[in-house]
């Protein structure tokens, strides 16, 4: 659906390139996350997808079109197939909620008599039917972002770009917006690309993730894999902040990762009893990555047959790593 082939981007008057040799493939129907600290090049990356920026080198292909090579009219046609939402919502403050959602329809030349019905349908989709006649200044942050989503969906796009869409929202509202995005992905088959600096956002909705650091993709893959077993130092730091496993682990501590139904089974207790090992839990977290349950525990094993305990844990499907 979207592919980056050795894409580089350098801004005039900038010392370092914003992006270096980025190659990514985003499949139709997936939720793809890009995470990185501020200044890593995330915003540039997402803006290349709909041609708000043009690549300095390499190729960006969106929905079958070479974005960098499009003439202005074809680029506008492509942008109508790609919705976008923003950190600060970017709504028209002078227009009502309904008029904001109607705007892209007018831009696309949809006949006036069809607009009202479509706007009503979109507002119902995001749960804002009662707010149609209000102005953005009268809405909460979460409501504003819902307007942004309705507006982005108005032209019936196949792709939705989310530029730090939850970064200005409180945690509870963030969850609601992410749930809505997940729902749109499942029900409309919408391909979603989101950029964020929060690992929690990735964990909650993304299928795959790419970690961006100083303009380069340093790690990418399945979210569970990257989240539970980060390799690159930048990823480790981002995950540590999110996973409650931060802080120094004592020598010999092990990190146990349970996935799927194994998360809820008393594996550790049973094996400890059988092998005469005592364990103390130093940190950990039981949660879900999208729908899949997982548990990750930082434990110290003492006494008994530790080697056998490790072997039994691995045999039971628990991943064991030195912390």
């Amino acid at each position: 659906m979207i592919s980056f082939q050795s894409v580089g981007k350098t801004f005039a008057r900038a010392a370092a390139p914003a992006l270096r040799d980025v190659s990514l493939h985003i499949a139709q129907g997936e939720v793809f996350g890009v995470i990185g600290q501020s200044g890593a090049g995330k915003s540039t990356l997402i803006r290349l997808i709909n041609g708000l920026e043009r690549p300095s080198s390499g190729l960006v292909v969106t929905d079958g079109e070479d974005v960098g090579a499009l003439d202005p009219a074809s680029l506008r046609a492509l942008r109508r197939r790609v919705g976008m939402i923003f950190q600060h919502f970017n709504l028209l403050s002078s227009m009502t909620v309904a008029a904001n959602v109607a705007f892209p329809l007018k831009v696309a030349g949809v006949p006036a008599r069809e607009i009202d019905a479509r706007v009503a349908e979109l507002l119902a989709r995001v749960g804002l039917t009662d707010h149609a006649r209000k102005y953005p200044a009268q809405l909460s942050g979460g409501q504003k972002q819902r307007v942004g989503i309705a507006r982005a969906l108005a032209s019936g796009p196949k792709i939705l770009l989310c530029d730090e869409a939850t970064s200005a929202l409180d945690p509870q509202t963030t969850e609601q917006i992410l749930d809505l995005l997940g729902e749109l992905n499942r029900e409309l088959g919408l391909t979603i690309v989101l950029i964020t600096h929060e690992m929690e956002v990735i964990r909650r909705v993304c299928h795959r993730v790419a970690v961006l650091d100083a303009g380069e993709v340093v790690e990418s893959g399945d979210v569970a894999e990257v989240f539970l077993h980060p390799r690159h130092p930048v990823t480790r730091r981002l995950v540590a902040d999110a996973a409650g496993l931060a802080g120094g682990a004592p020598a010999g501590a092990l990190r146990l990762t349970f996935r799927g139904e194994a998360t809820y089974e008393p594996i550790l207790g049973r094996i400890a009893r059988d092998t005469g090992v005592d364990y103390s839990i130093l940190g950990g977290r039981i949660d879900r990555i999208r729908e899949e349950p997982y548990g990750q525990l930082l434990v110290a094993l003492v006494g008994g047959d530790v080697a056998l305990a490790r072997q039994r844990l691995e045999a039971a499907g628990v991943r064991v790593e030195e912390a």
């Binding site: 709909n50 708000l52 680029l75 506008r76 046609a77 492509l78 942008r79 109508r80 790609v82 919705g83 976008m84 923003f86 600060h88 970017n90 709504l91 028209l92 403050s93 705007f103 892209p104 831009v107 696309a108 507006r151 032209s155 770009l161």
Partner: peptide, 13 residues
Amino acid sequence: DPGVVEAGQAMGA
């Protein structure tokens, strides 16, 4: 707000 102009561009206006 330049962001609002960018939103317009992103819609293909």
